[in-house]
Design a protein around this nucleic acid. Structure first.
Lengths: 156, 156
DNA sequence: TATTGTTATACTCTATAACTATA
DNA sequence: TATAGTTATAGAGTATAACAATA
């Protein structure tokens, strides 16, 4: 299979020469990020049989990682707005995966923790979550995967 | 600045040796994609002063690129569900950026096109859209940007 | 004054099912 | 009949702004 010349580089070269580069939507980082994230979400839905959304998984995985924290702090850890994380946590509590208790030291805070069911969900989900990541990256060779992750982390 | 060893590779190596790798949310491709896309969206919102969302921009940019097409076809071009694209197009028509007319050759179809206002929005937005892409990629050097785009396109 | 959490509102994404018009 | 496209509806994530309680 022949490799096509990289469009983004052509664009940059043109810009340097002072000519107007065409705006090609499909070559823009935002458009690519959206498409890649969408494909990842579909894979997640297939492997998790729609028990949990990627966002809900992120919330309980992070909660499992840190042991327990306030609602707003959890939001900061997983890059979610206070209003957003509230909705996510509400749904997780309704399913009995997360519980909250007022903090003893600061009565503004709600201390979030995983329930026994929540911990079980993590235990049973980790292998599948790894598989989602592997399948998302499957089009790339191992060294390319590592490069992508390293670069992606720096623009996040 | 010292470079830290790449965690994903360590994880893979561990998995190969049969030991259980820890699931670190922040090292998963899906989590990174979501964060990067979110940062891109924030930059978009800043530069477009919330006149348009990234999705709406994608719709009119693609429409400008292809000249005109049916609603469902547009959805396929920008990886959007038929129901999703309908909402987006409805909002764009309400703002007078897009108009629709029945196709002459296949009367099932509605041919979508940009209005004069829509074409003006594209003209005035392209420079800013380029800037959004540039700012999103700014943490990376030029050659790293090209590598990221090339790899990302392959997992989208 | 700053922070935590809540509420209200709006847009987007996704999925399903039902429907219309045409091939 | 089969297909392309549209419409209706619902649940979820995202963000902003305004607000009350607490630190």
């Amino acid at each position: 299979m022949g490799r096509k010349p990289a469009a983004p580089l052509q664009q940059t070269a043109r810009a340097i020469r002072g000519r107007r580069a065409a705006y090609v939507l499909d070559d823009q980082i935002g458009f690519m990020l959206r498409q890649a994230y969408q494909r990842n979400s579909v894979l997640f839905g297939e492997l998790f049989a729609d028990e949990l959304t990627p966002t809900q998984w992120a919330a309980i995985a992070k909660l499992s990682q840190v042991g327990g924290c306030s609602q707003n702090h959890l939001g900061r850890l997983i890059a979610m707005d206070a209003a957003t994380v509230k909705g996510v946590v509400d749904r997780l509590m309704k399913r009995g995966l997360v519980e909250s208790a007022p903090s003893a030291t600061d009565r503004r805070r709600l201390l979030l923790t995983l329930t026994a069911a929540g911990r079980k969900t993590i235990e049973q989900g980790v292998a599948r979550a790894f598989e989602v990541s592997a399948k998302t990256l499957a089009p790339l060779k191992a060294n390319e995967q590592a490069v992508l992750l390293r670069l992606l982390k720096r623009i996040g």
